[in-house]
Structures are given as C-alpha cells and as structure tokens.
Design a protein around this nucleic acid. Structure first.
Length: 649
RNA sequence: GCUGAUGUAGCUCAGUCGGUAGAGCACCUCAUUGGUAAUGAGGAGGUAGGCAGUUCGAAUCUGCUCAUCAGCUCCA
C-alpha cells in the first residue's frame, strides 16, 4: 500500500500494517511517541491495521489529537477502575476535555475524596497490567442487547439515539468494555501520570430535566514533570483568584445579610471602577457617543413591548405581589435587566431624520438580574452590576461601518487593559430548534445572521459560530475572555437587532420621505465593570497597572523628622492628580515597605534625613525594588509618563 | 435551581470521645526614631453563620435556613 505523509512524501508499505508499525519503520522513537493517527483526515487508532493507499499523519502528546486519545483512554481506565471497585455503578459518558478528562457515573453512593484515592490506586494497577485495547463493531440490535446485558442503561440510550446508519464501535481493555467512537492508545500501560482532581454533579446529557450524575474530573500527562507543573500552575492560579486576592487587597467584600451576588466595592475597588468608568466615558465621548442617564426601573408595560416580560421574566426582579403580575390594572414595576428600552425612549424623544443617523448612545448602566442561586460567583456573576452599555441607531447602509466602530472600540479597551492574548470571538446565533426562546421569524434571523457573518468576515474577525447563544432579539458577537483557570466568560458583546426598533416604533424619515426603522446595534465597550475588575486582579495578580492602581504612590518617612517633608511631597504629587498616601505611623521602614509592597503599591518614596537635606526622594518600585534617589520633579515626570501611556505593568 | 463540600476572633487556621474556646497576623496601649519585605512588651477581642431539635450538657449529633467554594444547568 502507498502511504502519503503530511510533508507530501510517499512510501510503499506492506498491506495490513498498523499505524504504529509504519511509525516504527520510520523510527522507533516515533513509534514510541505515537498515540493516535489521522487516516485520510479521520482521527483513528494507531493500533489498527491499515490496508490500501492512504494519507497518514501521526499524533504524539504534543498534538491536540494525541493528547485527546491519551486522556480519553485515561477516562476509560477511570471507568474500569470504578467498575472494579463499585460494580453497581452505571456508566454514562467520559470524554477528554481541554487539560484533562472526566467520566460521568450514576452511583448509589457519592464519591468521597477517600474513594478518589482508592480509584486512583486501582487505575495505577490497571496501568501496570498494561491491558491491550481492542476495537470491535456490532450491529445496532446486538449492540443494544450487549449493553443491556452488561446492565448499562445509559449506553443503551446512547446507542438507541444514534443515526440508523451509524457505525457502533466498542473498545475492550481486559475485563472492561465501553461504547466509544475512539480513538484510543494501544494499551492501558501507555497512559501514565494520571491525577484525579475532583468530583462534581452533572446532568445526564446536559439537561437539568434529567438525573444528576457524578462527574469525576482528572488529568493525565505523558511526563510526570508536566503533571506536576500543571498542578503547581493550578495552585498558582488560586493565589491570583480575584475572589481571594480582591478581598485581601480590600477591593471588595460580601456580607451575608445583603445577599448573594451583591458585593460591596470597598474604597479601593470603587476607585478602580471609577477610573475605568471615566476612561470609558471619555473615550466614548471622543467617538461620538451621547451619554444618557435613565431610570433603574420601569412599569411592566415597557418590558411587554421589549419582550422582556415574556422572554426574560425569570431573570427580572419584579416588585410587588406576584399574584398581581397578570392583573391588567395593577401598576407593576420591575428593575431593569438591560438598558435597551430605556435608551430607545431617548431616541423617541423627537422625530429623527436620516441625517441624524447614526446616533450613538452610551450609559454607565447598573442592571439587575435575578440569577439562580447557584450561579453567583465573586465579581464574575452578580445580581447587580454595572456595564458600559450603548445603543446605536443606524441606517442599513451604516451598519457595517458602525459595527466596525464598536469592534474597534472593544479592541482598544482590550488592548489598553492588556487582555489581548486572552480573548476569543464567538458568533452567537439563535437555536432554530428552540424558537420559543426568541422573538421574530426565521427569515429575519437568518438575514441578520448572514449580515453579521459577512461583516465579521469582512473585518477578518477570527470567530467560532455557536448556536443557541444569541440574545432573544438578535445574534451577538461575544468577546470571550479566559481567566486564570482558563475558564471563559463573555467580557464584551456587540449585537445586531432587527426587531426592537419596530416594536418600539423607532423610526427615521429617509431622504425619500419614507418612514423607516433603523437597525439597532447593542454593544458594550468593556462590558461589566465588576467583571473587568475581577479579570484585572487575576491578570496582574493584584498589581494593577499604575494608571488604574487605587493608590499609586506611598510616601514613607523613616523617622518623624521626615514626616513634614513627606506630607509636602504627597501634597505636591496630589496637585498633579496622582493618588498618594502617606504612612506616618511610628514603624520601622522595613515594615512600612513590606505593607506597601503587599498592597502592590506601584511606587514607594522613602524619605529620611539624607533625602530631606538633599531635597530628593528615594524611589522604590514594587516591581524592580530600590531605584535610588532622584529629584521629586524627575520622579513625577517619569510617573506621569507611565500614567499617560497607560503602561501595562 | 441541581449535586457535593465548607462555615470557629477582622484575616489564616487549631481544637481528642459531646464536658462550656485557642494560636499567629491585624487592632489598641506603652517603650523604641529606625535606611528598602515583619522592633519589643502588654491588652482587648468570639451568642462557634442563623433558627430549631436531641441531650444533664452541643463548636462537636440531627433537621431547616443563610452564605461561600467546585461543577452542572443558565448567563454579561
């Protein structure tokens, strides 16, 4: 058979050799490293015989596919160990995921950390047994009967739901067989350095209507050092966790009696948010936005027009007696979950001409959303939060240009905050199989989604398309950001809305004298301030860039003799808008430096007799330590330069 | 909302078998006026998240509830 390799080279091999055999003929080292392979572009087992001419590509642990096969096999080893120790447990699914794998089990008892240790020990045994992994296929009916005999109802359900012509494959390793599409590595001995991490609940097939199963998460690496490095990195991430650091640095706190998802921004945290808001509002003003201040609540009737009453009611805080919510005559108020309908009222203030468009409204807008109790998290998911909201009304011919402007603003913010490396773009579409969740018809949705896709392609945005993530009124471009744990959240969103203008009767008179509905773009520029603060804390491990640091300079006199001079230095810097604190306490200089350092204060000015006499300041940076003495003017110039350029460290 | 874990001083955490609460840091007082990450001594501080229950007796056992964390579901 003729095998073609990725570099285009071709070589003749004896028919029936496995991928591993071929790798071996190239080099024994390649065979050793090979975990799986591609055959004509399909990810496959490297241990299966090949016949006929094919294009083959080998995957090692360096490749995503190789890691996937390795960790997927680890998940089978996990399932095998669990079945050996707890035969009554039913198996659900167990894929590889980014950085690891999991397996879902329906177990009568909950797994404890002790159980995890036992399971890990059993997995180590299975690894030592080095069981060969074999693949086999069964026709549908036999496959169902087989899994039924093994007492695996979840597997039976999975097979039953497969398309009629699907190939139903199984993988066997010793006494264990699992329904699985593969691919896997050749034997259980290949998979080393496995660590089980935690156990959590997960719904069968991801639906809250189904039974909750127990999911065991784990990870596995080819090299022990890499596993250790990964675990160390997890521990390091914990130290940067905004929920811990943000509290330690007194940026925010929470109080039981106020409630979930309602943090207190302490003076330092509030200062950072204030700085961000000023920065955003100024930048938006520069870009032609008009600031509004609209109410935090409105009558039910407003939300009926917008569709929130019908499509978002569970997410709203509605005031008064729920018994009266359907009473037409009752006056019902609800806190706003979004700003759109309020800013639309600004547009409706008078009649608009095509010459007025585009109109760009922005607002630093506090929103209220009644999130389910289990959703709240630190500063990331809240019940009350403030976003850099904005709505643009534009003519159809302006949509692309305005969308581009929104994206440019978003990118400017991301770059300025230093998040450029951490973002990805998600084109969030509706779910055409679940139209109940949305307003509007299929034709309108597809037209708008096509428009948005064209714009994204035009702007060369590298996006992923995802179904079912749209807003109820239109598709979105979500700018996703990864936190220290690699978890993604939406930071910024830009949405094209082809429906709400019509619902609210927003019009403009076009050049031909016709009344027309503008296209509305909903967008944020840095999204939610609380969330942004959280991400900043994690990104910079609490050492916020000087331009947004709550305290930029701490003046530290060595003795009381330098106290007056220190106060003078602080006053002088304050006159330039620099945020300064003075530490006049009767403490040793080492102690004051330690505290300022732990507070991540960018600069410390140390004043003793020497400095006072020579009229200089001794500068210490949190990053580089002692910078020596300089004149106050020189220090100030250097600092102001750093602030003006919004330097990222 | 669901599954699981956790909740002891402002913070980080001890606390045996159910027998009546402890340390370090922080805070306050006094002494010390010092040179780039912790000066020393003393003092004060707790209705054990909250509410019930079991018990002669509950931080410890049980139930409910509130909050926090991990994950699921949902979302900015």
């Amino acid at each position: 058979m003729l095998i073609t390799f990725p570099d285009g080279s071709q070589r003749e091999f004896q028919d029936g050799l496995t991928g591993l055999d071929i790798a071996n003929e190239i080099s024994p080292r390649l065979r050793k490293a090979t975990l799986s392979c591609d055959i004509d572009g399909a990810h496959s087992d490297a241990f299966r015989p090949i016949s006929g001419d094919h294009a083959v590509k080998f995957y090692t642990f360096k490749d995503e596919n190789g890691r996937w096969a390795y960790r997927h096999t680890a998940s089978h080893v996990l399932a095998q160990a669990v079945k050996r120790l707890y035969p009554d447990v039913k198996l659900a699914i167990g894929p590889a995921i980014e950085n690891g794998f999991y397996y879902d089990f329906d177990a009568p008892e909950t797994f404890t950390p002790d159980d995890l240790a036992k399971i890990e020990a059993e997995m180590a045994k299975i690894e030592k047994e080095n069981l060969s992994i074999e693949r086999f296929e069964l026709p549908r009916e036999e496959a169902i009967a087989y899994m039924d005999k093994l007492g695996e109802p979840y597997k039976v359900e999975l097979i039953s739901d497969l398309p009629k012509d699907a190939i139903i494959s199984f993988y066997r390793q010793g006494d264990f067989v699992d329904l699985c599409a593969g691919p896997h590595v050749k034997s259980t001995g290949v998979v080393k350095n496995i660590k089980l991490l935690n156990v959590a609940g997960a719904y069968w097939r991801g639906s809250e209507k189904n039974k909750m199963l127990q999911r065991i998460y784990g990870t596995a690496f080819e090299k022990k050092a890499d596993l250790e490095e990964y675990i160390t990195a997890l521990e390091e991430a914990k130290k940067r966790d905004h929920n811990k650091l943000g509290r330690e640095l007194e940026l925010f706190t929470t109080v039981d009696i106020i409630g979930q998802g309602l943090p207190i921004l302490l003076p330092k945290g509030a200062r950072v948010v204030q700085l961000l808001q000023r920065f955003v509002e100024d930048e938006e003003q520069r870009r032609g936005y008009m600031l509004t201040k609209t109410p935090f609540m409105a009558k039910r009737e407003l939300y009926k027009i917008s569709g929130h009453w019908d499509h978002y009611r569970d997410g709203m805080f509605i005031m008064g007696d729920p018994e009266t919510f359907e009473d037409e005559n009752a006056e019902i108020f609800a806190l706003r979950p979004m700003t759109c309908p309020f800013q639309f009222m600004a547009y409706l203030n008078r009649s608009r001409s095509y010459r007025d468009l585009p109109m760009r409204y922005n607002e630093t807008s506090t929103l209220f959303r009644n999130e389910s109790s289990g959703e709240m998290h630190g500063l990331i998911r809240l019940r009350q939060f403030t976003i850099s909201e904005g709505h643009l009304a534009c003519r159809p011919d302006q949509v692309e240009e305005e969308f581009k402007g929104c994206l440019d603003l978003a990118k400017f913010m991301i770059d300025t905050l230093g998040f450029t490396e951490d973002v990805s773009y998600r084109f969030s579409k509706w779910d055409e199989n679940d139209t109940e969740k949305y307003i509007g018809d299929k034709e309108g949705w597809e037209r708008t989604q096509d428009m948005m896709r064209d714009i994204l392609n035009d702007l060369e945005v590298p996006f992923d398309e995802v179904d079912g993530e749209a807003a109820f009124y239109g598709p979105k471009l979500d700018i996703q950001i990864r936190n220290v744990y690699g978890k993604e959240d939406t930071l910024i969103t830009i949405q094209i809305d082809f429906q709400l203008a019509e619902r609210f009767g927003m019009m403009y008179t076009d050049s031909d004298g016709q009344k027309k509905y503008p296209v509305v773009i909903h967008r944020t520029s840095i999204g939610c301030y609380e969330r942004t603060l959280a991400l900043l804390i994690e990104k910079y491990a609490g050492a916020l860039p000087t331009w947004i640091a709550p305290v930029q300079v701490k003046v530290l006199p060595i003795t009381d003799r330098a106290a007056d001079a220190s106060v003078e230095v602080a006053k002088s810097l304050e006159q330039y808008g620099i945020r300064v604190e003075t530490d006049l306490r009767n403490e040793k200089i080492g102690f004051k430096i330690r505290e300022a350092q732990m507070q991540k204060t960018p600069y410390m000015l140390i004043l003793g007799d020497k400095e006072v006499e020579q009229n200089v300041v001794s500068v210490r940076s949190r990053k580089d330590g002692d910078l020596g003495v300089m004149s106050l003017d020189d220090f100030r110039a250097k600092l102001l330069e750093e602030i003006a350029t919004r330097a990222k460290s």
